[in-house]
Amino acid sequence: MPLRPARIGRVGVVGAPVAKAAVVSAAVRPGPAPVAKAAVVGAAITPGRRRRI
């Protein structure tokens, strides 16, 4: 691991092993209607959408 010497022995900032996050692109790529799913996400963040209480 040819890291610069400045990185060796220093206190880290990440803190703990990082878990793999859900792959975001998988949400809109596969499935029977990928375009529809992308549109759904777009609708969710459209200004004016009101939450259901």
Partner: peptide, 17 residues
């Protein structure tokens, strides 16, 4: 700025396949 330490590299790589 070389903020990441060697330990960080190992922690971050934990997420990789």
């Amino acid at each position: 700025a070389e903020l990441l330490a060697a330990d960080d590299v190992i922690n971050l790589a934990n997420a990789m396949d």
